[in-house]
Write a protein that binds this DNA or RNA. Structure first.
Lengths: 287, 287
DNA sequence: GCCCTGTCATACCCGGCGGGTATCACCGAA
DNA sequence: TTCGGTGATACCCGCCGGGTATGACAGGGC
């Protein structure tokens, strides 16, 4: 009566994202007519218009926008429930809820901290097995939300901690990473404005939630590619200090004085009850 | 494949809470055999044992515990999606997502602050309609989670803000509320230890998440009952200072020096995108 | 020891509904 | 005008969710 079936949510989200019944149906692996009907039934059940089908395409109504956000959260929660339950499956120790934790980490970020954390936790007597799940740029949020991960290392202000519990682990400044031979590499400090306005050396751009910000610089896919482009003198970037651990000889670094500090947090879904997770958090905050 | 149907969640939660297939089926308004079968199918689909059916009753496995927590969150999210979408339904202003907000408030708490907030917000040019939803003691969390409310006033450390975004609005000390004639009413200050150990005047107990803490004092249902019992000299309590706004002539108050301060927050689900909500939060923090 | 009771599982049947195919109605562009 | 592309409608079918009847099994009372 007042709860939505996940099938309805899946269908609506597909249509709301594609804004096209045919493509949405294809994505769902079904035919278009039953999808149309399902959406109509959903609208009738809710007593609300979700989509406006006008000439040439489909658009979301206000209520449709709401359902797009809320529905995504609900669907993530449902798949998270399935995944976490499955993961807790093998371990049937009474009381304990699973002896394996999945930790999502941005690839090549906070490497030293991660190493220390894993070592310290593994030394605990009742340590669970930790699976490190490398993730893309801002993917940890999503992974925590849909249950692919149980806990994550996240970096404010890049990642949003909204909706998670978290503890601060480390705070560091940022540095500009330049080609070794560049004139500015001789400077003792730089400002964001200076780094962003180097003639012939545009700032690298990497995706935030799947989209690249506008600008002249190259679009970065992974850290290796970024390192190479900098070494070749094609781009420049601003990174947390801990990036020094993966720099090449062909790189130079200069502190950026007015860049906001990068704060590494350990974050987890707020309703978590696992003892293994509690142990990991305790270890992390005690470092 | 890797997502649970809300029907499955409803069924499992009913069984997990009742720990009895027959009663769970009755609560769900269905017969017992199909429920048994549905749970078996769920276990097979997940590849995980959720319940141990031994002689005389049912118990949760570790994985079952996990699904109990995660599933409740997922089901709440699904019903929240339905409710909020329905609520946004009437208002179909392009871009805007609904022009009505439901604000959950603990009955008779922070009355002055609430009055100021409502007045200030109503004075805004683009103010949405605010529906004030009175809630029980720790019910606001649940209401925000399952979509009955869009935003809430919550009181740390009584309510848990975990999983919500929030802003601090007010911080206040606590006072002991005593019968007017009581000897201790003449004191200038009291400590928690003193209030908790008054001969013949036990501390009132009110429910935290549905259960009453143990103790000799009376179990309180609502504020009026509490006020009456105090006036009659049957109990005593410690309350935030703002409780003064609803006290009777037969009550006396004494500051409690070592009670933790009570912090009133405005809290909302972290993924909210509504402009009306943003306006209310701006108004609240600007008070 | 018996039977009886309470519990969950099994067996079987049926109706509804979710999904498929074929087709229509509509609009915009050539 | 016609044609391509869109979503909606019509109709059919098979599956599965739900019901009833019954079984299996373990305790507790007499």
């Amino acid at each position: 009566m007042d709860t939505l079936e996940t099938r309805e949510l899946r269908y609506f989200l597909a249509v709301a994202e594609e804004l096209h019944f045919g493509r949405a149906a294809e994505r769902l692996g079904m035919a278009q007519p039953p999808l149309s009907r399902a959406i109509q039934q959903l609208e009738r059940r809710l007593g609300v218009a979700l989509l406006t089908r006008n000439r040439r395409g489909v658009a979301l109504t206000g209520a449709g926008e709401v359902l797009l956000h809320e529905g995504r959260a609900a669907l993530d929660a449902a798949t998270a429930a399935a995944r976490r339950t499955r993961r807790a499956g093998g371990a049937d120790a009474p009381g304990g809820s699973g002896n394996r934790l999945v930790l999502a980490v941005k690839a090549a970020a906070a490497h030293d901290l991660l190493q220390k954390l894993l070592d310290a936790y593994a030394a605990q007597p009742d340590a669970a097995e930790i699976e490190v799940l490398p993730s893309g740029m801002c993917e940890q949020e999503e992974m925590l939300r849909d249950g692919r991960a149980d806990v994550a290392l996240m970096h404010a202000p890049f990642d949003s901690l909204a909706g998670f519990d978290s503890e601060e682990l480390m705070r560091e400044g940022q540095i500009a990473v330049l080609p070794a031979g560049h004139p500015l590499a001789a400077r003792r400090t730089l400002t964001l404005a200076e780094v962003g306005d180097i003639p012939g050396l545009p700032l690298a751009r990497w995706p935030r939630h799947g989209v690249y910000p506008p600008g002249p610089g190259p679009e970065i896919r992974d850290q290796t590619q970024l390192a190479q482009l900098i070494a070749l003198g094609r781009t420049v970037t601003v990174f947390p200090e801990s990036a020094r651990s993966w720099l090449w000889a062909a790189h130079a670094t200069v502190p950026v004085t007015d860049a906001p500090p990068v704060v590494t947090h350990i974050a987890w879904p707020p309703h978590s009850r696992s003892v293994a997770l509690a142990g990991l958090i305790r270890t992390a905050t005690g470092l």
